[in-house]
Computed example of a mutant assay.
Amino acid sequence: MFESMSGGHQEHPGGADRYHLTLTADGRPAMHGWWASEAVARSKAARWIGDWGKPGTRVALVDTLTGATLTDWPGAP
C-alpha cells in the first residue's frame, strides 16, 4: 500500500492522479493521498504540515510522472 516510500516510481492505482502526498510518523506510514492537480496537492501538503507537523513526522509530495519531490517537510536535518 505504501510502495512509494521505497523510493521507486509509483502511480496511483487509478492512474489519473499524478501527485502523491505521504505522511510518516516516527518512520512509519501514517496517511497518504493522490491528486490530479498540483495546486490542490500543494494545498493539502501545507494543510497536513499545519495539522500534523511535529517532531518525528515527515510530509512529502511527489510528482509521480517526473519522480520529482515537490515538498519534503521538514527537509534534511
Rank of each mutant, 00 (worst) to 15 (best):
D51A: 11
D51Q: 09
K54V: 12
R47K: 14
R18Y: 09
D26I: 03
D72F: 04
P74A: 01
L21I: 09
A45W: 06
P55I: 03
G15C: 10
A16H: 13
H20D: 15
S6Q: 10
G50V: 01
S6W: 05
T24H: 02
A30E: 07
G33H: 11
P13V: 04
W34E: 02
I49Q: 12
D51W: 11
G15F: 11
K54H: 15
R47S: 15
S6M: 11
S4H: 15
Y19H: 09
E11S: 12
V62G: 03
R47D: 15
W35S: 05
V59D: 09
M31Y: 13
Q10H: 14
G15K: 14
V62P: 02
F2S: 14
L23N: 05
F2L: 07
H32K: 06
P13N: 11
A68S: 02
H9T: 02
L23D: 09
F2Y: 13
H32G: 13
H20G: 15
P77D: 10
V40L: 13
T64I: 06
H12A: 05
M5F: 09
G50A: 04
P13S: 09
P77M: 13
T64N: 15
L61G: 04
V40M: 14
L21P: 07
K54A: 13
A46Y: 07
D63G: 04
D26F: 07
M5H: 13
Y19E: 06
S6V: 05
T22P: 03
S43R: 04
T69E: 15
R58T: 00
M1R: 00
E38L: 10
E11W: 06
G67L: 05
L65D: 14
L21D: 08
W35Q: 12
G15H: 10
H20K: 06
G53D: 01
A60W: 08
T57H: 00
V62L: 07
R58I: 03
K54Y: 09
G15P: 12
D63N: 11
P74W: 00
L21H: 03
V59Y: 09
G33K: 12
D72P: 02
E11K: 10
P55H: 07
M31E: 14
W52D: 00
E38W: 07
D26N: 07
T66R: 12
S37F: 05
A45P: 03
G53Y: 03
M1Q: 11
H20L: 13
G75P: 08
L21E: 06
V59S: 05
P77A: 15
T24L: 02
M1I: 03
L61P: 01
G56K: 00
G53R: 01
G53W: 03
K44W: 12
G56Q: 00
A45Q: 05
P13K: 14
W34S: 04
A46G: 14
M1N: 06
G8E: 14
V40S: 10
I49Y: 12
F2G: 10
G53N: 02
A39E: 13
